[in-house]
Design a binder for these strands. Sequence first.
RNA 1: GUCCCUGUGGCUCAGCUGGAUAGAGCAACGGACUUCUAAUCCGUAGGUCGGGGGUUCGAAUCCCUCCGGGGACGCCA
Length: 560
Amino acid sequence: MNPILMIRDSIYTVISSALEKARETGKLTYQTLPEFVIEVPREKGHGDFACNVAMLMAREARMAPRKIAEIILEMIDDHPLEAIDKIEVAGAGFINIFLDRSWLYPLPARIYQMGDRYGYNESLGLKAQVEFVSANPTGNLHMGNARGGAIGDTMANILARAGYQVEREFYVNDAGNQIEIFADSLEARYLQRTGQNVPFPENGYAGQDVVETVKNIIATYKKTLVDLPQEERRQILVDYALKEKLAYIKDSLQRFGISYDVWFNEQTLHDSGKINEVIDLLKQKGYIYEEAGAWWFKSTMFGDEKDEVVIRSNGLPTYFGADIAYHKDKFERGFDRVINVWGADHHGHVSRIKGAMQALDYNPDSLDILLMQLVRLYRGKKMVRMSKRTGTTVSLDELIDEVGRDAARFFFVMRSPDSHLDFDLDLAKEESQDNPVYYVQYAHARICSIFRQAEAAQVSLGDIASADPALLVEEEESLLLRKIADFPEENVIAARTMAPHRIARYVLDLAGLFHSFYNHHRVLGVDPELQAARLLLMYITRITIKNSLDVLGVNAPERM
RNA sequence: GUCCCUGUGGCUCAGCUGGAUAGAGCAACGGACUUCUAAUCCGUAGGUCGGGGGUUCGAAUCCCUCCGGGGACGCCA
């Protein structure tokens, strides 16, 4: 188990029982224990851990926080925990806990043994699903999809390490209105290129990729579709195009390091009658009413500004109508947590879909919607204009071609999802100190180099796991070891707070501590015992960098 | 008009459930390679945390209000 969590639990118990003892002996009076924390102080001088309970109790106990803290200390047994070196009261009433440095000594050997598995927490026995990208299969993947891909895949990796059993899912919108528009566009291009003078629909997909698809269709079908009945012709065009587009999307995502467990087709919800089924159920429950020929969901009951149409007056379900059935289906598949990664432009949809789940007696808190702000592309200072209408978007494929997968994935998750992302193409492909991806990868490559040197010098690496961590007394060594120890918990926090960018920052910090160590101390050629201990430290640093980069979907090169 | 995101050194951003003297990176300035990769390191300088009010032992963090930037408000998805 994770040593940080263990020690924290133990400290919590020590403090709790001291509080209990203080109450029993009448030194403190309180009704309920406040929700206090054992946190890691920012300042090293404030100990390894600090507790804020005295301040939180001040009001109820009618006593100064420092006084309370002192009473707590009095009530703590002489040797509550082997690992604790000293405890003291500081500042406004903090209880600072200093640990004996030996508390981390068992860790390196354990990480050495765990290898790729280091960072995984114990299984929670819970299933989580992450649905992300889910781009319309009518075109290329754009920057929004790309960010969604990086965030979604990273979140899935984080959840897996936090102890969930995770599935990745792509929702294919292969039904509904935009497929009709897609068919219009394909048909118009097909007829145009086979010699007929037909207008292109005003709201159609004007991009070059539709033209390319139609060229392929003509290569296969020649002009044989011209004389078919319109419905039949459109069906063939759409089937062909969707298949081609989906294969393309799948391929792009693969290049981006993303693969899915499930590709879910919206059409199946229409075909199986599940949409009508759930609409009927909501009608029975009184959440849906008819007005002006359409059916409306009472989303105002769940904090929305107005109700939302689920079945249009033409009898066809809206996107939202289908989405209710889709999310019901997700919960029926037994997921304990359902997570959607959406662009911020969908935020209006959040309270509605959660409301619909509540109406269906599912717990809306089991549905998390991770909204991410939109992406703006730059080349240096110049913004790259993107327009779907004119087809001048930069696709994910072009992005990977230009800056590479590693830089792209790192940049997309480097910032908080809440933050608008300005993606600088020039910076991302710059092989310089400005580029954080290289900083981390370089750290990994440097460590690999040390091991290559060690082998060349015939240093025995077989027994480094049994090296003595007590020899790692330098400041840089302690900081590095302490940071490495944080990794499993870092995944837990990132999962809880839906913060994939935490891992990017974590690995940057870790790489920084390594570089600092590297510039201050030598690994090879020092005293053999110390050399073994440092090799062990390097080994587990490499594992932790590699495993962090795995979470981000970024490669860890052995040479640069 | 309503709703969502955002405002932190010159620039780009962290800051977890309110905690101690607000942190990184880049840019600036000054240093460090005869030994494991200088794509690195060390040091210096730089901040009314958009403005104002409130909550409390304590606010960048929570609440109210105003201002700036981005986005959403369709029988589109």
